[in-house]
């Protein structure tokens, strides 16, 4: 883990690459239980934008099959949302890929 943090890390090169990135804002739209939050949770997970302790918190909870992560719990940040299994209010989440930074608004079903 500490191996990256050496003086050989090309910070200027990394920052230059970051400066080139676009910022894309987007939002989900869909009916109740279409899987909007689950999809976003999955995107966050796959782009490694969630940390291990956050995944540990939701493991074994939620409404998916046993042993499977309920990805919607990553974005449903309010207790009432997790209890009822629905998104009540908009959440903004952030992730980035090699080319772009994203701000995504996770919306309630409508």
């Amino acid at each position: 883990m500490a191996t990256l943090a050496t003086e050989t890390f090309p910070i200027e090169q990394f920052l230059a690459q970051e400066r080139e990135k676009d910022l894309l804002r987007f939002s989900t739209a869909g009916s109740v239980d279409d899987g909007k939050s689950t999809l976003i949770g999955r995107l966050l997970y796959d782009t490694q934008s969630v940390y291990e302790d956050q995944v540990r918190c939701i493991r074994g909870k939620g409404s998916t099959a046993p042993g499977q992560i309920d990805f919607a719990l990553l974005t449903d940040g309010l207790r009432a949302e997790r209890e009822q299994g629905i998104t009540i209010d908009v959440a903004c989440r952030y992730f980035s890929t090699a080319r772009r930074k994203f701000i995504i608004a996770d919306t309630p079903g409508h």
Binding site: M1, T3, A5, F9, F14, Y51, Q54
Partner: peptide, 14 residues
């Protein structure tokens, strides 16, 4: 600070 930024990339906990 560059060290911290490099370390941040490798972090697995929040």
């Amino acid at each position: 600070i560059p060290d911290i930024i490099a370390e941040l990339i490798s972090f697995r906990s929040s």
